[in-house]
Design a binder for these strands. Structure first.
Length: 143
DNA sequence: GCCAACGTTGGC
DNA sequence: GCCAACGTTGGC
């Protein structure tokens, strides 16, 4: 299983929107590195949903429900989409500041490459965020 | 193939 | 509003 972080502007499409929709197409990715990450996402992979802009925080947990397929709106056949479903909204969002202040997370690609909108995390990093900030036992997530 | 100029994203 | 860090485009 792999672990990811997807960015979105809450004004554009928020985690609450995803909760409402239950299951949504994650489209609009127009960056090659982000697209390659999309293509690497497998069904069942766990995903943090992060709000950019004024919020700058992880607001929810989601899961990949459908692996990549061509973006129907892209005539050049260059870009693809995936589908995700909301798992749960965080009671307390994990802010970028909290992440930056945690030394063991200093190597997060999220911090090193702030422009990338589809970011991989290692299991270690994902678990760390779950345990330290969300107070969850990772294994429960993986059933 | 190189690079200057310009565009975009996202944090500060 | 600005800037850093990338990406993209187009002239050469």
């Amino acid at each position: 299983m792999n672990y990811w972080l997807l960015k979105t502007e809450s004004e554009e499409y928020s985690f609450d929107d995803l909760v409402c929709d239950g299951n949504a197409v994650w489209d609009g990715i127009r960056n090659y590195q982000a697209r390659n990450n999309l293509k690497a996402m497998k069904k069942g992979d766990k995903v943090f949903i992060y709000h950019t802009g004024d919020e700058k925080q992880i607001v929810g947990l989601a899961e990949v429900v459908k692996e990549h397929y061509p973006d129907p709106s892209d005539k050049t056949n260059t870009w693809c989409v995936i589908q995700v479903k909301a798992l749960e909204k965080l009671k307390k969002p994990v802010t970028l500041e909290m992440i930056k202040n945690e030394k063991s997370l200093k190597d997060l690609q999220l911090l090193k490459q702030s422009r990338l909108s589809v970011v991989p995390l290692t299991k270690k990093e994902f678990d760390k965020i779950l345990i330290v900030f969300i107070h969850k036992i990772p294994e429960i997530m993986y059933i």
